[in-house]
């Protein structure tokens, strides 16, 4: 069984983002970039399925500019077998990404697609669900456990009140939540080996999908700053302030 893992290049989760003064977006110049953390969890889960003998090949795919190949190499260094880069101009919206991924799925015929539940840049939480919809496949979102058995994926999902388990007939789309696993670090030999692994490059235009944006970004602003408050010395003083100054008790 083949597993396709879409990965996104995003600003590193430790970087403090800065809004551009002209309000056109976030400043990405000379900022450390990394694989979206939820996608790392997706790569790890695919690799564990392969190591358990449940999957044959793990293919990582990224949609973006030429630099997205670095993110694919990260997945290959973790242990994925090969990569596919779908090259686009401006950063595509989730619907466009889902359409491009659908075209890749039709070429590759995986039985399972595992991807992060959201990207930590746009925080959309859409792509996996949209891909499942376009393919007519079932979806298991926000997974904290994934078990493959008898042509089905049994997915435990993190939902607002607790946990829910669903059974999906394969092929299916699964999106990862934080508790699914802890991703491995790539070892130096694996990083060296990954440089020789194949990465196909496809032009998005060649896939014949409509990647045009549907949303107009009118402005991007910094959030209103919260003023730092005061230090109190004792719990009794804290209670006094909460009662008599803040009026919340």
């Amino acid at each position: 069984m083949k597993i396709l893992v879409p990965v996104k290049r995003v600003i590193d989760f430790n970087v403090k983002v800065r809004v551009k003064p002209d309000g056109s977006g976030v400043d990405l110049a000379n900022v450390k970039m990394a694989m979206n953390p939820f996608d790392e969890i997706a790569v790890e889960e695919a690799l564990r399925l392969k190591e358990a003998g449940k999957a044959g090949e793990v293919v990582v795919v990224s949609i973006g500019g030429p630099e997205a190949v670095e993110t694919i190499r990260t997945g290959l260094a973790m242990g994925a077998d090969r990569g596919i880069l779908v090259k686009t101009g401006q950063p595509p919206e989730p619907l466009a990404v889902a359409k491009a991924l659908k075209a890749v799925v039709e070429r590759e015929s995986p039985e399972l697609v595992i991807l992060g539940k959201q990207a930590i840049d746009d925080d959309c939480n859409q792509t996996g669900q949209m891909l499942a919809a376009l393919l007519g496949w079932p979806q298991g979102t926000f997974a904290s456990k994934l078990v493959l058995e008898d042509g089905a994926a049994v997915v435990t999902r993190e939902i607002d009140g607790g946990l829910e388990t669903v059974r999906l007939a394969l092929p299916a789309v699964v999106t990862t939540d934080l508790r699914l696993n802890e991703p491995r670090y790539a070892s130096l030999p694996n990083i060296m080996r990954s440089k020789k692994k194949p990465v196909d490059e496809i032009d998005a235009a060649g896939l014949g999908v409509d990647m045009a944006p549907r949303l107009k970004v009118l402005k991007v602003e910094a959030p209103p700053a919260r003023r730092a408050g005061i230090r109190v010395a004792t719990p009794a003083e804290l209670v006094d302030k909460l009662k008599n100054e803040a009026g919340v008790l």
């Binding site: 983002v17 930590i120 746009d122 991007v220 959030p223």
Partner: peptide, 8 residues
Amino acid sequence: IYAGNAIE
């Protein structure tokens, strides 16, 4: 967006 560090 960006964990609330920018507002779009």
